[in-house]
Write a protein that binds this DNA or RNA. Sequence first.
RNA 1: GCGCCCGUAGCUCAGGUGGAUAGAGCAGCAGCCUUCUAAGCUGUUGGUCGGAGGUUCGAAUCCUCCCGGGCGCACCA
Length: 547
Amino acid sequence: MTALETIRAALAQAASRLGASDVEVALERPRDPTHGDVATNLALTLAKKLGQKPRAVADKLIAGLELPAGLVRKIEVAGPGFINFFLADAQVVSALPAILSAGANYGKTDVGHGATFNVEFVSANPTGPLHVGHGRQAALGDAIAALLEWTGWRVSREFYYNDAGSQIMNLARSVQARIRQARGLPAEIPEQGYQGDYIREIAERYIAEHPQDNEGADLEAVRRYAVRELRAEQDRDLQAFGVKFDVYFLESSLYTTGKVEETTRRLVAAGHTYEKDGALWLRTTDFGDDKDRVMRKSAEKGSDYTYFLPDVAYHVTKWERGFHHALNVQGSDHHGTVARVRIGLQALEMGIPQGYPEYVLHQMVTVMRGGDEVKLSKRAGSYMTVRDLVEEVGRDAVRYFYLMRRGETHFVFDVDLAKSQTDENPVFYVQMAHARMVGIYRVAGRDPASVSAAGVDLSVLTQPEEADLIKELADFPAMVQGAAAAREPHRITGYLEGLARIAHAWYHKYRVLGEPEEAARLVLARAVQQVLANGLSLLGIRAPERM
RNA sequence: GCGCCCGUAGCUCAGGUGGAUAGAGCAGCAGCCUUCUAAGCUGUUGGUCGGAGGUUCGAAUCCUCCCGGGCGCACCA
């Protein structure tokens, strides 16, 4: 039982003695160190229920508190009625052996109890290369998946390919047009077609590899070829970015397995559909939508399903594949689909919870270079791709930058800052802190992995910076848990920057080697290095041993 | 018009699920190099939390309205 858990339990018991049983005891680490190491607002929340003044309740709670000896060195009531706990020095220092023995697992918890969790992200249509917006999504999705894994979920990373819709036909016709142009035949890119240079390149390769159809007459073959090429291209980009998916789910499979038909039948059977103007509609207004939605188009529009139905069918497969927790990372420009997918699942009346699936939406990305915005025009086919970015600034910096801001904010990617090798660059700053800790061991001629706290007198770590550092390290598991629960990886980058700052300050102010405190400080340096490494690896960023 | 997101220091942004005197980096100002990496560190200036109400012991955080910016509102995906 950790110090925190002990305090929590003791408070709950003291509260029940005052006649308040089953209370939620909230503990927090105060921002202001003069407010102690652990604080609770329990007396404030109980005051009303008990009809007494908060500070009086606090005094009574403290009087009824049974804590083991040696845990805290001071307890005080402060402000409107907060109870502040000051941990004994031995308690603070005891975090270090725990960190070293947990090693690469330090920070992991088991709130998920090994239950499965499906995280879908990127899911770009195979109609072009991955652009900088997809990059943000790849970084976010992968980091959220990792956060869930760190908190005990069994995560499956999933990529959904829309390889069956009308956009794919646009792609095929665009490539076909380029093939014909390359052969000197009259042809034009369709109205909604794709203009980029990559289309021309695919056309040229198609001609080279299809001597029997070098005018692209076989549209279906062109389509298959273009999709395959673009998927391979996207896979290479994702690989360069260090993102791996467990499942690639093809929209087309929903048709070949009959899942779309089946979902349609179920919706009809559930009684929420009707026909109007030759189309099949779902009465989404029954579930709070502002208008009903078409499921299957009328004959004159081609009798195709709209995108909506395969989306619903797809999420049915997630549920049926056993994923009772599912999260989709999407650009906020698709937020309109959120309610509709959920409504579709509700209309099936098959016991899927209302908030399923969960969504994390993120805003757009703009790229700045030399103080100017890099203009992106999809129409003209001028792209800034993920690969361009990775090649220019490096994988680690790209990932870190994508993750250091909340997803809800519009993100400005500063290429110059990301490339800079100075402390203004946060990823550099954090990696440098890690390299420095390793550097101490290098100079000492010791293998960091062999360090243990056994037999080391840690009580000599008495400097204020050392206590700060240790408390920060002890915070890591709670940080990870909070970031996972909120699906907010940026909390981890913020934490790492804060930890790096304290570590740099400590490193600068105190020496390790050759000091009386050497053994204990080596343990501390090792613990700092371990936590930095764990945080970085969680985010998919390397922790270099030297820079 | 309707829906979602955003508005916090000169700039870029945090603010751990309602807590104590609103924080950090950069920029500015004042300092620190015989050192395990100065690729660094220390100190300091700077705020009408877009605005107005409300909820309560307590609001940047929750509710309502308004202002400003982004995105979305198809038998496109």
